[in-house]
């Protein structure tokens, strides 16, 4: 069933590319240009995913498996990741789909990101995770719950209430923001509401297929890049996770070529490559110690109402705004 990872990756990559869905832009534009267009796409998608994930878990198609919250590394890692994505010129999924568009800076960024994540999860930097893991907060769920038996804390586990209550309130608040406030206009290929719906559906189906393949999580970027590097370096068989990220790159490339948007893009100032390498390093390190990137936490973890993902999302945005200020707003 690992091949379904490739299939879902292909679709996801093509959607991200054609829809220009970059979380770095989504967060940054809110402040830099007071533009909420891309942010609304991802918030709409998160709201719908919340319903889809809970519904799928209710029917027994998945078990929600949110990442552990860590008092130190969720905050620290997310802030470092948030700053890193501004330097790298894209979030984890953003640099991944831009690889397929021919953005050469993104090629350097993903190498730096993937290698650093590999080193932090399995190599020379792993002592950081080991040292901080004592601050992890996990909990045990009953066998018949919507959650995996031992997993990260969520709003419902902390408040000891039915998971559907915070889920419905959260989804309603997101939808109120999306449809109840003014949206910045932009001429794009795909209508933003349709795009938000498509992303949520693809994310939900991906979670179900990934669960069937024995991997209990939805889309991710950091873990999948580590798995892909691991397959490459250690001659391991490709799994759902590594195939999904490979699919995203290929899907984006196909979409870009088909729409005549593929082009080898190179910045005039070579220092940009140094900047994106540093950004990729910060993203790989940050997303490994906080157990997730913008996809693992914001896109998939928030809909499960994981405490880790809620805190991480806040610090992604704060890190993003901090680095945006230093790079682009001081003039």
């Amino acid at each position: 069933m690992a091949w379904t990872g490739l299939l879902m990756g292909l679709i996801f990559g093509a959607l991200l590319q054609q829809g220009r869905v970059c979380f770095n832009s989504a967060f940054r534009d809110l402040r830099l240009t007071k533009d909420n267009y891309t942010f609304k796409i991802v918030v709409l998608s998160v709201a719908l995913s919340t319903i889809i994930f809970h519904f799928s878990a209710q029917l027994g198609w998945i078990k929600m498996n949110p990442a552990a919250f860590n008092w130190v590394s969720t905050i620290l890692g997310a802030f470092i990741f948030g700053m890193g994505m501004v330097l790298a010129g894209g979030c984890a999924s953003g640099i991944t789909y831009r690889v397929g568009e021919g953005m050469t800076t993104a090629w350097f960024a993903v190498f730096s990101f993937g290698l650093t994540a590999y080193a932090t999860k399995k190599g020379a930097l792993n002592w950081v995770i080991k040292g901080l893991s004592k601050f992890d907060v996990r909990t045990t769920y009953a066998a018949d719950s919507l959650y995996a038996p031992k997993t990260g804390v969520t709003v419902s586990s902390v408040l000891n209430i039915n998971p559907w209550i915070p889920a419905l309130i959260f989804a309603a608040l997101c939808l109120w923001y999306v449809f109840g406030t003014k949206t910045t206009q932009r001429k794009t290929k795909i209508n933003w509401i349709l795009l938000g719906i498509l992303l949520a559906v693809v994310s939900g189906v991906a979670y179900i297929l990934s669960y069937k393949a024995g991997r209990n999580y939805g889309f991710g970027i950091t873990g999948p890049w580590v798995d892909l590097f691991s397959s490459f370096l250690n001659a391991q068989k490709l799994n759902w996770s590594s195939l999904s990220v490979l699919g995203m790159v290929i899907g984006s490339a196909i979409a870009a070529i088909a729409s005549k948007e593929f082009k080898l893009r190179m910045p005039k100032n070579p220092m940009t490559y140094v900047q994106v390498l540093l950004g990729g390093f910060m993203m790989g390190f940050g997303a490994s110690i906080d157990y997730g990137c913008n996809i693992g936490h914001f896109f998939v973890g928030l809909p499960m109402l994981a405490i880790s993902s809620i805190i991480a999302s806040v610090f992604f945005i704060l890190g993003n705004w901090t680095m945006t200020y230093f790079l682009y707003q001081r003039d």
Binding site: R28, D29, P267, K268, Y328
Partner: peptide
């Protein structure tokens, strides 16, 4: 203004 090849959001800025 030539911003070909620049990373996001350099063209905008």
């Amino acid at each position: 203004l030539d911003v070909m090849g620049e990373v996001c959001p350099v063209p905008d800025v």
